[in-house]
Design a protein around this nucleic acid. Structure first.
Ligand SMILES: [Mn+2]
Ligand SMILES: [Mn+2]
Ligand SMILES: [Zn+2]
Ligand SMILES: [Zn+2]
Lengths: 139, 139
DNA sequence: TTCCAGTTTAGAATTATTATAAACTAGAAA
DNA sequence: TTTCTAGTTTATAATAATTCTAAACTGGAA
């Protein structure tokens, strides 16, 4: 079901995340990366979608492990915005978000849409790891 | 142990949060608000400190309930920065933070220390609820 | 083809948080 | 003051997200 060009890319992504290309992991890759547009998800939604139509099942543990490995390797971005649940993003370019507190959905804000004209210097010996803004919105 | 001036303030804070001034809640107030400087905490650290030296105990449920009520009433600010735990701030003025991923500690950034010279318009029918920046730092 | 380190998986464990329900109490009213 | 009751406290159970475990399974090197 995976066209061979993409297969190579997925195998490469897995290998460089220190993961062997198994059929479960390739199924996850296909769902995450075989798309025109990037998207946001939680482990809960990913698990439901991956295991929707019968065929073979992928365990929740494998989904957690793979998402975690891809996040460490930089193929997914984790977005901390919600009290009890982690969100992930297949858009790994640095960018900002709206977070709708009603629908609990994230929307991308292109990096150039926010300009920080003044940023403080971090404490001695510390470096800025990440400066992405989450703007909370509601009705 | 609570000087009477502060007592009045605490009773007022509790009443306006729709809470009766009980001795457990006053103990929490004293710990949170009887200080020169504001500070950041988690429910876990607050519970430990409140119940450190013997005397009378305050249950974890009461701590959760009181913190939640003060947050809704605007006497505490909740800061979502960590995957599995909520942080709270007794500094309720709008301001930004450094979050140290090593020590897991928050540091205030005065509101004027960050200047956003360009901010996107929220989607139709939505308003910006909050625009406070968390800058992740590490060694 | 063999073989084993790496993998998958179901289920248990952990952690933060929220809910429950019985015993207690603040404070209004008698 | 005493009574009375709605609100409160508390221990404990329940829930939800996440992480761990250990036994069965398999990718791929040799
Ligand atoms: Mn939680
Ligand atoms: Mn959790
Ligand atoms: Zn995004
Ligand atoms: Zn602060």
């Amino acid at each position: 079901m995976i066209i061979s060009d993409n297969l190579k890319i997925y195998v490469q992504k897995l290998r460089s995340s220190n993961l062997r290309p198994t059929k479960q992991r390739l199924k996850i890759c296909q769902f995450l990366f075989d798309r025109e547009k990037t998207f946001h998800f939680t482990v809960e939604t990913l698990n439901k979608k991956i295991n929707k139509n019968g065929a073979s099942k992928v365990s929740l543990a494998t989904i957690y492990n793979t998402v975690e490995a891809f996040t460490s390797a930089g193929y997914l971005k984790e977005i901390l915005t919600s009290k009890n649940k982690s969100y992930y993003d297949t858009n790994i370019k640095s960018h900002h978000h709206f977070y709708d507190e009603g629908s609990k959905e994230l929307t991308d804000i292109h990096y150039s849409q926010i300009q920080l004209s003044k940023v403080p210097i971090p404490p001695k010996g510390k470096k800025i790891k990440n400066l992405e803004v989450v703007i909370r919105i509601q009705k």
